[in-house]
């Protein structure tokens, strides 16, 4: 059952940031993840600071540099259905469309999708795990079929977002507003691996709010896609997935980003796979080499070795789709 909490809805970003500086506060965007966390006692909150009174955080607009600015409060459904995004940033549109269910996409926001907490069933359940300050990971020797095969250390979550790997593949930036103004961070640097700090997933400081995502103009000959493998057709996080963004000129790959989902505690960029692509024609042999490189060095746990072929398959299928 949901515990009791106070609720405020500031109408300026400044007021919201000020409210969020107080201890015991949490930002409330779509609430699809936050309310579940509170109900399941994953973390407490005395006060929820709603961001719904900030219309400037909603919407998709072109930037002067030829990219797109997506307000953090833009719903996932809007991102999935936006014609400019579908035309120029296909991986993002596909990733947004693969999120959860229609109801959750209508309510959930892009910012919330990037900031959502892990879905590890020990973290979400009645287990005092390392990420909750318990000093112990239950998954590493426990029920770990849905856990990570890359980047695990102390904690073995996978990053749950579908839009995050797509946006990392698209070289997105995020703007974080705080009491002292705002800062811009490459999305890739926004996520914190457990090796750096296993108690947080992002670089957001207390009192900071993610306000917008900026995707730069796509490279020449750009094409991108997102492939998600899951256990059921809707309302499910990725078992394995791959976001791929390429720039192809003169029949050869000039620019490549390969980012895995369902693989690691953060969206898992694989430079080796990108190197396997750059300078080559996107043929079957290149695709196979890149797919092999994408999963090289995976360290499966007892129950999740199946993820390695699934991730390889996701990369292969994503690249094959971009080849046609």
């Amino acid at each position: 059952m949901l515990p009791s909490f106070a609720y405020v809805r500031p109408t300026t970003l400044k007021a919201a940031v000020a409210a969020l500086a107080a201890p015991g506060t949490r930002a409330h965007a779509g609430g699809t993840d936050l309310l579940g966390c509170l109900r399941d006692r994953v973390f407490p909150a005395d006060t929820l600071v709603s961001l719904a009174g900030l219309p400037e955080l909603v919407g998709v607009t072109p930037t002067a540099e030829g990219g797109l600015r997506l307000g953090a409060m833009t719903t996932v459904a809007t991102v999935a259905g936006h014609p400019d995004i579908a035309a120029r940033y296909r991986a993002l549109a596909e990733a947004a469309a693969a999120v959860a269910s229609p109801q959750l996409r209508n309510q959930g926001t892009l910012g919330g999708n990037l900031c959502q907490r892990p879905r590890c069933w020990y973290f979400r359940g009645d287990f005092h795990c390392a990420r909750k300050g318990g000093g112990k990971c239950f998954a590493v020797d426990g029920e770990n079929r849905y856990h990570c095969v890359f980047g695990g250390e102390t904690c073995f979550i996978v990053h749950p977002s579908d839009t995050a790997p797509a946006l990392v593949a698209l070289d997105a930036l995020v703007r974080l507003a705080g009491a002292g103004g705002s800062r811009v961070v490459p999305l890739e640097k926004f996520f914190v691996p457990p090796s750096a700090d296993f108690t947080r997933e992002t670089v957001l400081e207390p009192g900071e709010v993610l306000t917008e995502v900026v995707v730069p103009a796509p490279p020449a000959g750009a094409r991108s896609t997102y492939r998600k493998v899951r256990a059921r057709g809707a309302w499910d996080f990725a078992l394995a997935g791959a976001a791929v963004s390429l720039g192809i000129e003169g029949g050869r790959v000039k620019h490549a980003r390969v980012v895995l989902s369902g693989a690691a505690p953060i969206p898992w960029r694989v430079p080796a796979a990108e190197q396997a692509l750059i300078g080559h024609r996107l043929d079957g042999a290149t695709i196979a080499r890149a797919a092999d490189a994408a999963v090289a060095g995976a360290e499966p746990l007892a129950d999740n070795a199946y993820k390695v072929p699934l991730l390889r398959c996701a990369v292969e299928e994503a690249l094959t789709a971009l080849n046609s």
Binding site: R119, W121, R124, G125, F127, F138, D141, G142, E143, W235
Partner: peptide, 16 residues
């Protein structure tokens, strides 16, 4: 799914 170390059900909800 029951956790082997604690005997507790880890997927006692409609998502997991």
């Amino acid at each position: 799914v029951l956790d082997r170390a604690t005997g507790k059900m880890v997927n006692a909800n409609w998502h997991d």
